[in-house]
Design a binder for these strands. Structure first.
Lengths: 144, 144
DNA sequence: TGATTTTCTGGTATTTTTATAGGAAATCTT
DNA sequence: AAGATTTCCTATAAAAATACCAGAAAATCA
């Protein structure tokens, strides 16, 4: 139903938290979990997705944790949600790499969906992490 | 994941089919089901949603069926999807009638979600049934 | 009266989402 | 070297959403 799942919303909150606290060394998930009220185990599974896309870098062991790989102004919301949730296309046949729908050339709604995907993508790409963090949320926040 | 469910896509296809064929009297679901390759029973449950919002009108009995209540140019895609899928807000706290999130005034992402909802809504409101039908799809179509 | 079609109730199967559990591997600190 | 901490990996379970089916009642027309 055009919903963002918790996985995506949590990923965004985690990234915002890291952006706030990762200047002086890696941040452990345990401290993020406390601030954000997300269970440690669920966060771990989300981190693997962010790690795979190289949005964060990790160091194991004591006093280890996660750090951002770029400057906060170089992340946009779209790529974070995309990393966490996979493809954001509103209908399936936009998501597949090769358009295997045999009737896509005559499909009356395809241009509409294509336009919607573009609209959403470009809108979310317009928000960077530091833009959001200037709003200065109290942690933990409401779940967005 | 920002997906439109089959319920919404089917509702749109059904409305497009009705728009095409309902000039000369009511259209039975059986004929729509044949053309659109959707099971009769699933369509019935979708029709009850469209009926509740008075997007269509029904007549029972022999040679009964469904008809549009308005002219084709007076339907937009948003209201059809909304009727079929319920609220299209990307995050839950936009969907509730009264904003019960205690921190919504300090939530750093809320304005972004509000803007996204508005963007999507206005985009989909810009498409009317007759705009889509001029593309003249072969029925059944690909599933969009 | 009989045929057809919507409508209603309720149920089931499948998939996706969300979350948890346990332990292995790596790294730091002492 | 030992212990503590933290990421990482695999598996599983609970919950919710989605998709679909069955059967019968009600309405309508011929």
């Amino acid at each position: 139903m055009l919903k963002i799942s918790t996985k995506g919303r949590y990923a965004l909150r985690i990234m915002l938290d890291l952006a706030k606290h990762s200047e002086e060394g890696p941040v452990s998930l345990r401290t993020v979990a406390k601030r954000q009220q997300i269970t440690l185990k669920y966060m771990e599974s989300i981190m693997s997705l962010l790690l795979r896309e190289e949005l964060v870098i990790s160091t194991r062991g004591k006093s280890g944790g996660y750090k951002l790989t770029r400057k906060v102004e170089d992340y946009n919301v779209y790529e974070i949600l995309h990393a966490a949730e996979g493809n954001l296309a509103p209908v399936q046949c936009l998501a597949v790499s090769e358009n295997d729908c045999p009737l896509h050339k005559k499909c009356p709604t395809l241009p509409m969906w294509t336009g919607l995907e573009k609209l959403v993508r470009e809108y979310l790409q317009g928000f960077t992490l530091d833009m959001l963090n200037t709003a200065d949320l109290p942690s933990p926040n409401c779940g967005h």
